[in-house]
Structure formats: C-alpha cells, structure tokens
Amino acid sequence: MPRNLLGIADLKVSDINAILTRTAEHIKVGSHLKGFRHAAQTTSRKNIEPLSHLSIINLFMENSTRTRVSFELAGKRLGAEVTSISVAHSSIRKGETLIDTAQTLRAMAVDLLVVRHPHAGAVQLLAEKLDCHVINAGDGFHEHPTQALSDAATIQQRKGKIEGLKVAICGDIRHSRVARSNILLLQKMKAQVRIVAPPTLLPDRAQIYDGVEEFSDMREGLTDCDIVMMLRLQTERMQGIFVPSTREYFHFYGLDREKLAYAKEDALVMHPGPMNRGVEIDSNLADDLALNLVHDQVRTGVAVRMSCLELLWLKGSRELEQPNKDKVIDFPSQTRALK
C-alpha cells in the first residue's frame, strides 16, 4: 500500500483488492451504517474504533457535499477526530498559498489529510511537502480515486466480479476525473471498458487509452454492456461550447429505457451524482432503484472510505517523498541525445 492515495494510477491490483476486501467486510457487518457503533458499544468498544487516536482533516477547496460528508462519516465511524474545512471559510481566500495552508495544518499534528482541489496535481504537490498521509478527494480533471473504488465495490457486490464485464462510461469523459479513475481501475481489474460521448466530450486526440473502445453512437456503445456508467454533464459550462443544447444532448446521449434496452437484460445503471434529470438520465430511470445503483454507490462510498483510511494508516508506506524532487526531472531515455 503506498503512503498516499493520490490516484488509481499508483495502485497495484493487490492494493485495490485489499481495499475491496476490507470494504466487503465492513458491508457484511454493517460497520459503515448509522447505529452500528451504538449497538456495538455495549460489547467491545476497542475493535470498532480502530482509529480513535487519529486526527483527520478534510480540506475541501472546491464545493462538495457527498464526498465531504462521506469522508467525515467514514472517519467518525472509525472513531477518529475529524475536522472539515471548506474554501469559503479558509484563509486561502486571504491569499495564503496552498503549501502554506497545508503546512499550517500539519503544524497542528494532523495524521491524515483528505484534499479536494480544483486543479490537477495540487494534491500531489501537497503530498510532496507533508509528512502525513494524504488522500485525493478529487483534483481538477485528474483523478477521484475513492469514487472509482466505490463504483468498483458496488459492481462487485451486485455482479460478484469485475473481470470480464463490459462497462460503458457515458457522457463528459473529457472533463471527468471520475471517468479517468474509473477507466484506470476497471482496466486494472480486467473489465472491458468503452467510452461513449459526442466527440467534443471525448479526449482531444483519438484513441487516447489503449484497449478502450470509443463510441459516439450511444446505442452502439451500449450494446451488450453489463454496466452503464453515466457521468454528470456540467450544464453550466457546456452549452454552445461542447454541445449545442441540453435538449439535443438528451436526445442523443441521455439514458432512457429505449437506449438501455441495447445493453444486456440484467444491465445496471450507475451515476456518481449529482444527477441532472432530463439531461443525461431520464427521470423515470433515475427513480428505478432496481436498475439504478446510485444510492448503493453512495452507501458503499462510506465503507470504501473507511477502508482507505484504515489501510493507509495501518499498512501505508511510511517512506517520505524525496525532498527537492520537484526540481529533478527523470530524463526519459528517448530524450537523450540522438545517436
């Protein structure tokens, strides 16, 4: 297990399996649910609060509801002391740099820092400067590893496996850290990944991921899929730039029962939330909880985050990042002089 959870890209398959296994244990005993602690308190308190000596800070420099609450609950249900800071209340607004803020927090002896930041790579930058464990709760368009792990855990619960499944990720791939993390994770777990979107919402250069099929026709893309993962269209930024209108988008890329019929009969629908009804998903389908796993994903999310906190703390590498690493470039062999 690495020292920090910065992205799926850094995780080995064994790390992913360890997190998924621990998640399954939590779900089995219900330790991620409200009331579990209360019920268990009467028996053996020690076992159920393994992180009771830990201080966790959630530093959210971008708006978030579900991820922040999910991390807060995960920490609290493990007995840790959890503090959440969101950007509106922090001194970032007063002009303090990211590194200064982090070092201030570190000076208060934080054991584990959970960070969301609007810019790609910001969480890694923090991790290099700090000697506590750092979890990426989403950085720009880069990665959102705990969301991908929640999705994987949800799939595993419902389908019993990930390997060999056909998964279509649909929507705004281009601006989605959830999509990036999911593509990496599903490929590591040997699922067959497809991405479905209008070409303006696909990555800039064609065939950017090895082994990932790209589709711009949703019916074709959904054909024979086991899982349909919908992504949120950021309507506030999209119109007229990447897609002409939400009406046109829904017509061609909104998930409804007619398009879903192209997938396998037992196909399941996922969405990282929040959903835009009538934009990327039909309202009727959004409410069909037999098909739609959106609540499962959220519930599983707490268990996954508990597992990540525990495993990083208990099994995470203690090795520090090298100082001054930011100035040393690992010259790739092909950029050596020709000849």
């Binding site: 890209a9 790609a120 790579g121 950085d139 720009g140 368009f141 880069h142 990665e143 850290r177 990036r180 990555p203 800039d204 250069r205 950017i208």
Partner: peptide, 18 residues
C-alpha cells in the same frame, strides 16, 4: 492550456494546447 495536447495531458487531467 497547461501543456502539449495529447495522451499525457489527458492522463494528468491537464488542459492541452494543440
């Protein structure tokens, strides 16, 4: 844009300059 457009920019979640 942050860096050259392409596979690496996309992996890093950075905005590409074509």
């Amino acid at each position: 844009g942050d860096m050259n457009q392409g596979r690496l920019a996309d992996r890093l979640g950075l905005v590409g300059i074509p």
